[in-house]
Each structure stands twice: as C-alpha cells, then as structure tokens.
Design a protein around this nucleic acid. Structure first.
Lengths: 133, 133
DNA sequence: CTTGACTCTGTAGTAAAGTAAAGAGTCTAT
DNA sequence: ATAGACTCTTTACTTTACTACAGAGTCAAG
C-alpha cells in the first residue's frame, strides 16, 4: 500500500475527507498526484502532517500560523536566515503559552490537593492565581 | 473611580465594547448592576476576568471550556467535589498541551541554534521532530 | 442648555474553519 | 457486468467568536 486514497488518509489521521480537501485548498498540504481517474494518491507522510495540524490547532495556533510553522521546510528558495527569523518569533509565542499553562497547572494542582472533596467553595482560586500579581 | 463604564473596562482589558456585551450574553461574565439610566457599572475585577479569557483563548481553549474553568468559583452550591473533578480533567488537558509545546520549543531552539543564518534548507525539522517516534 | 462623546437594545454581517449535499464518474467484489 | 462504496467538483450551509450598524437615550464640558 504505497499510496493511499483520501478516505484511507482521513481515517488514519482521524479527520474528515472534506477537511483534507479544505486544507489542500488552503495550502496546508500539497496537492497530491492523481490517478488518471482524478483520484488523489497520498503517501504516508501526509498523515503525520495532518496529525500535526490537529495538535497545533489545539494549542491555539490558527491555520495561518500553522502554515508558517510548516513552511519551515518546503522550497529550497527559502533562505535559512528567513527560517531562523520565523522560528525565533514562534519561540516567543510558545514560551508565553507555556508560561501561562504552567501557571494554570500549578494553580489547579494546588486546588486539587487542597480540595477536601466535599463542602462548598466561595472563591475562584484559578482566577486569583492567574490574574493577581 | 469605584465603578467603571463599559468603555473604560474595554480600554483596560484591551478589547471591544461589543465583545464585553457578547461575553455577558454568553455568561462568561456576570451581568453588572446598572445605573437608573441603564448604563452598566463594573468594578475592577471584571478586567482581570476579561484578560484571563483572552489569554485562555490564545491557549486554544474555547469559550465553553473557559466558562468551565471560570465556573471553578461561582455559586456556593457547587460542591468542592465537583470542582475537584473539573480541575483534574483540565489538568490532563493542560499537561498534554504543555508537552506538545515543549517538544515544539526544543525543536525550534535546536533549529535556531544550528541555523547558519544563510543558505537553503530542504527538510522540515519541526515536523520531523514532532511526528517521528 | 447644547453639542459631542458615550451607552443602550436589537438585528445583521463577517471571518475562520469546517461540514454537507448534489450530481456525475470510478472501483471492486461477487 | 453490476451493485454498493468511494471519489470528483462545485456550491451552499453551519458554528464559533466576534464586529458593525441603526435609532434612541444619557452624560459632562463649556
């Protein structure tokens, strides 16, 4: 099974067929070669790419940003200077996201630990911890 | 300035007035008290809440999820047992997000370090690092 | 006491990211 | 060689999260 149909790819990546075609139109995945019939023929690599896109989306990246992340490869015309610039910018984004998540995480952990598991609560520790100071 | 108008809140939180009213309709922020004129009167706390909402959105949480996070306070009727459950579930989400971001981060860091700053590139290290193995 | 900036409600429009359906052609297992 | 499943393109619809009026009322400085 050296080449897969769009349906097989969709199943492996856990997304819909329409979504794959949509990403193709958006330029997030390359247009694959076609059979004489017009059927798309994919190789396994596209599944990785699709899974990556799903994960990055869950991290709050837009499709446009994901495209930029993925563009860190592609054409040999892209100079590595340009890539470096993009990568550095994305690192700043990511650093900020990790920090925010870590704070949420610490707060929630404390909450879970200290939580008696019964009785009422009357304040919002997560909001307090995240917004104060 | 013990109470603020919607315009002042919007400015402080860095969002639009319409967005604040939208969040109110969605239940993400409480309906504030009104003057006789009908004007909304906010206290400073709402700004923190709005900033939190913006940040959580950037982390890929939907408004529905953010509402759940924020519901970790509210009514004294919410038992702490329930809160504990929600907090634990959110912790799992967050843990996964942090891991993915850390991997992206390591990969991008290596890329930036090794990057000569000039010349062409012909593979996608971020995709490779995130999907292989 | 007026004028310009602000706020109100309600409705409608927009952008991003899909999702669905129609009508026609293709593949494959029996 | 044909029925059932799959794929093609094109167009339209949906959801989420805003964003923009329109028309009317309110506030505050001069």
């Amino acid at each position: 099974m050296n080449s897969m149909t769009i349906g097989q790819v969709a199943k492996k990546a856990g997304i819909g067929i329409e979504t794959i075609r949509f990403y193709e139109r958006k330029g997030l995945i390359d247009e694959p070669p076609r059979k004489e019939s017009g059927y798309r023929q994919y190789d396994a690599g596209v599944v990785d790419r699709l899974v990556f896109i799903q994960q990055a989306k869950m991290l709050g990246f837009t499709l446009a940003e994901i495209q930029e992340l993925l563009s860190l490869k592609i054409s040999p015309e892209t100079t590595s200077r340009e890539i470096k610039k993009i990568a550095e910018a994305k690192l700043v984004d990511i650093e900020a996201k990790v920090k925010m998540l870590r704070r949420m995480q610490r707060t929630l952990k404390k909450l879970v630990e200290k939580c008696p598991g019964h009785g009422p609560v009357d304040h919002c520790p997560i909001l307090e911890a995240l917004t104060k100071r």
